[in-house]
Design a protein around this nucleic acid. Structure first.
Length: 361
DNA sequence: AAAGCGGGGAC
DNA sequence: GTCCCAGCTTT
């Protein structure tokens, strides 16, 4: 059945007015004090929403505060060096969020005089602003009645309205957006949207939800049926592929260490790392020859320092970390350079490689 | 519509 | 270990 036909059916016996009041009043009463709730500054709301994608509140708080100190306005972020922005994002993950955010903020400074657009069509064009962030900024910063559907909202609504659509499917979000469009508060869309998300964070949690404390328990079909733990329906993803690497800590005669900048696209784009030998493609006995071909350096392996296992959402790196020294040769790579140990921490690294240079520092 | 893209916390 | 999370972009 099509979304337009399902929505009226789903909300037919749903007491929207009472639900809205209870949700909004609960949010006003119980909302957490968070740095990005100090005011309605669209730039702060925007930055917080980008950081909060796939990332927990407690993790984001210190990053957000530091980020706002470094880049208090869109202009400050627009003129900043990309590597500085990535350094401020180091450890948060999904680094394309930071690069997209800066790209978008530069667009805002250039085309909108530094004012975050409050018009749907303009805002949607900005890099990194998808359906969720669009609705979050418009409702929270500009008080517009737009849906902001994230995983929290889908979980909460799937329970309240007993919806069994697979929330892992891309198309399912549209159903929830249509439902929110139907029931969102026109008077306080900000508190309505944030209330749904706050409810998901504090009460309607993925496991062991606190239904007895829920302000909208009376409206919840899943609670009435005792099936709150079975919802939402979410198909499981396939497991990660393991990828073996040799990670090299290569020191030259001056005691400087070789690091390199990753490609500006793909996994961990524009982040820095210790050179890695992909053992799936390179036979270990051909390693030195391969390395000479790639870097122009003849090296001698030293002691093994560590084994680092790093899990991504879609793959697993298994890295053996080995020291190495240079026998001869001239570094022949644009993206690589020798750096003194006291400067090495000024570059942005993914966590997998922070694990490595903890050994050096 | 599906795949690629990080990291950490809860259990 | 498993599951989950305040998603977007590219293909």
């Amino acid at each position: 059945m099509k979304v337009e036909e399902r929505v009226p059916q789903i909300v037919e016996h749903f007491n929207q007015e009472q639900f809205k009041d209870q949700l909004i009043n609960w949010f006003k009463r119980e909302q957490r004090t968070l740095p990005w709730r100090e005011n309605q500054d669209p730039y702060r709301v925007w930055v917080s929403e980008i950081m909060l994608q796939q990332t927990r509140v407690d993790t984001v708080i210190p990053y957000f505060n530091h980020f706002m100190t470094l880049f208090p306005t869109p202009y400050d972020l627009a003129v900043a060096d990309e590597q500085t922005v990535l350094k401020s994002w180091e450890g948060l993950g999904y680094y394309s969020r930071a690069r997209n955010l800066q790209n978008a903020v530069r667009e805002v400074v250039q085309s909108y005089e530094g004012i975050v657009p409050d018009e749907k069509q303009e805002l949607k064009k900005l890099k990194g602003v998808g359906p969720y962030t669009l609705g979050a900024i418009l409702s929270i910063a500009y008080d517009q009645p737009e849906p902001a559907v994230d995983g929290n909202v889908m979980r909460v609504l799937s329970r309240i309205l007993h919806i069994e659509d697979d929330i892992a499917k891309a198309g399912t979000r549209k159903l929830f957006e249509a439902l929110i469009n139907e029931i969102i508060s026109a008077e306080n869309p900000s508190a309505f949207n944030q209330g749904l998300m706050e409810l998901g964070a504090l009460i309607c949690t993925p496991k062991s939800p606190s239904c007895l404390l829920c302000p909208v328990q009376d409206h919840c079909h899943a609670f009435a049926k005792g099936i709150e733990e079975e919802l939402p329906i979410k198909s499981s993803k396939k497991k990660q592929k393991k990828v073996p690497y040799l990670a090299l800590v290569i020191e030259n005669q001056d005691g400087d260490i070789l690091i390199e900048k990753r490609s500006n696209e793909g996994l961990l784009a524009s982040m820095w790392q210790y050179p890695m030998v992909p053992l799936a493609d390179v036979d270990k006995k051909d390693m030195k020859h391969w390395f000479f071909g790639e870097y122009g350096l003849k090296i001698e392996l030293g002691s093994s320092i560590d084994h680092v296992k790093h899990v991504f959402s879609h793959l697993i790196w298994e890295m053996e970390v080995v020291r190495a020294t240079i026998v001869e040769g001239e570094l022949d790579r644009q993206n690589a350079r020798f750096v003194s140990k006291d400067k090495i921490d000024t570059f942005p690294y993914p966590v997998s490689h922070q694990k490595i240079h903890r050994h050096l520092l």
